[in-house]
Simulated scan of single mutants.
Amino acid sequence: MSFRTPLKQALGLGASHSGTSRWWAQRVSSVALVPLLIWLIIGIVRHGGADYTDAQAWLSSPITAVLTILTLVASFYHGALGMQVIVEDYVSHETVQLALVVLVKFAAMVLAVAGIFAVLLVALGG
């Protein structure tokens, strides 16, 4: 017994399977974010009452700067993937959907680059 419609059988079209790679990417980025965010939260709590020079000294360590940049990249990538799924699921008009996905990806990229620039500016003493 086949549940295929005559149109599906004629066209040979089925699921596009394009969502699988995004699903895996979101799972991998979420797994990467767990230790990164735990590390960042501990670092922020430990330096909570610090002034700018102490924060700059902490962030000027190469390991700290790299881990902070990785946290920013993973966070914005994960967030953009999640927002794309939300837009694709709940916006039915194709043109609006495409515009929103492009806007989400552009905003995530701009914010990630701004965050990386800020980290490098503080870490390098600018």
Score class of each variant (00 low, 15 high):
M83E: 11
A114V: 04
G79N: 13
I44T: 07
G49W: 09
Y77N: 02
D51E: 07
V34H: 00
V104N: 03
G43P: 00
W23E: 12
W58F: 13
V96W: 09
A65E: 10
V85E: 11
I44F: 11
V31E: 06
I69N: 00
P35H: 05
W58D: 00
G126F: 09
L70C: 11
A65R: 12
V104R: 00
V87A: 14
V85N: 07
L120W: 09
S18M: 12
Q9V: 04
L72Y: 09
T71S: 14
L59S: 02
A50Q: 09
H78E: 07
V122W: 03
V101H: 03
L33Q: 02
L100F: 06
A114G: 04
A108L: 11
I86A: 12
P62R: 06
H93M: 13
A55S: 12
L13I: 15
Y77R: 03
W39C: 04
S2L: 11
A32L: 15
A74P: 00
T64C: 08
L11G: 00
P62D: 00
H78R: 10
F106D: 04
L100Y: 05
L70G: 03
T53I: 13
Y52P: 00
P35Q: 05
T95P: 01
S18G: 13
L70Q: 05
V85M: 13
S16E: 10
A80S: 06
R46A: 13
L11F: 11
V101K: 08
V85W: 15
Q97H: 06
V66R: 11
I44G: 04
A112F: 10
T95W: 14
R27D: 07
Q97V: 03
E88C: 08
S61M: 06
Q97C: 05
L81P: 00
R46K: 10
L124Q: 08
Q26V: 13
T20Q: 14
Q84D: 12
W23T: 12
D51W: 06
W39V: 04
V110L: 15
S18Q: 08
S92L: 12
S16F: 10
L59M: 13
G48V: 07
I69C: 04
I41N: 02
S29M: 09
Y90A: 11
A15F: 12
Q56T: 06
Q56N: 00
